[in-house]
């Protein structure tokens, strides 16, 4: 579904990603792990088009998308829940969700709104509250719900459990597994590497802008280098 081919990205002429290649198959959960500053968020931003690529190619469903602006990529079916939630603070929860469906107006978006509310009942309770009044966990649910409103084929999740209580982390990861069951492909970046690899079909390890390891979630979980670097054992 998604193929990244020797992709490089730079911030102000400083190259952050060096010739990264990876792929995501339809229906998979793929986890991307790596320490802070490895370039995970930059990679995701380059995929969704808010950060321009320096060189290399991105193919989505067989078509080149790396020259398309971000809003066209959303229309193609790539939806990105960014690091740090980035909700529209002054707007209500429900407006945030409707804006998620900005490229998908129509009768089906009502059904998706109901689906988001049944996945995250707390959002339905707070539908008229300003997004900035929500707790961190609720804002995270809102960011994921907003991304789902775009009816994505590929959902990109950047650090969905950052700063959340352990119980909420489990709840969010359960939702991710459930999305996979519903046929949504997920590319997941998580600082909680063991939890991410445990639910992932495959994983990639990114170090200083390069892919250094790839394999199935289970294999990476047992890899001694991964354990030492990211799992603290």
């Amino acid at each position: 579904m998604l193929t990244v081919d020797t992709l490089s990205t730079a911030y102000d002429r400083i190259e952050v990603l060096h010739s990264v290649s990876l792929h995501v198959r339809k229906g998979e959960i793929v986890a991307l792990v790596g320490s802070n500053g490895a370039g995970k968020t930059t990679l995701l931003r380059t995929l969704s088009g808010v950060q321009p690529a320096l060189s290399g190619r991105i193919l989505f469903e067989g078509q080149e998308i790396h020259r398309l602006p971000a809003h066209v990529r959303v229309a193609r079916g790539i939806s990105h829940s960014p690091e740090g939630r980035q909700v529209f603070g002054p707007l209500t929860v429900e407006d945030n969700l409707w804006l998620g469906a900005f490229r998908r107006q129509g009768g089906a978006s009502r059904a998706r709104l109901d689906a988001v509310y049944s996945t995250f009942p707390v959002l339905a309770e707070k539908r008229h509250a300003a997004a900035m009044s929500l707790s961190g966990g609720q804002q995270q649910m809102l960011a994921i719900g907003r991304a789902l409103m775009a009816d994505p084929k590929l959902l990109i999740l950047d650090e969905p459990s950052l700063g959340l209580a352990p119980l909420l982390v489990d709840q969010i990861l359960d939702v991710v597994v459930d999305l996979k069951r519903k046929g949504i492909t997920v590319l997941l970046v998580e600082q909680n590497a063991s939890a991410a690899l445990a639910i992932a079909d495959r994983g990639y390890v990114l170090e200083t802008g390069r892919i250094v390891l790839e394999g199935s979630g289970k294999v990476l979980l047992l890899d001694p280098k991964v354990r030492a670097a990211y799992l603290g054992t």
Binding site: H71, V74, A75, S81, P82, Q86, L99
Partner: peptide
């Protein structure tokens, strides 16, 4: 209106506006 809300959303958070598909 959705367009009006998109304007407010762009004002509130431009990165998120681009990520939901608003042509900033």
């Amino acid at each position: 209106t959705l367009l009006g809300k998109a304007l407010l959303a762009t004002a509130a958070n431009r990165l998120a506006a681009r990520l939901v598909g608003i042509n900033v």
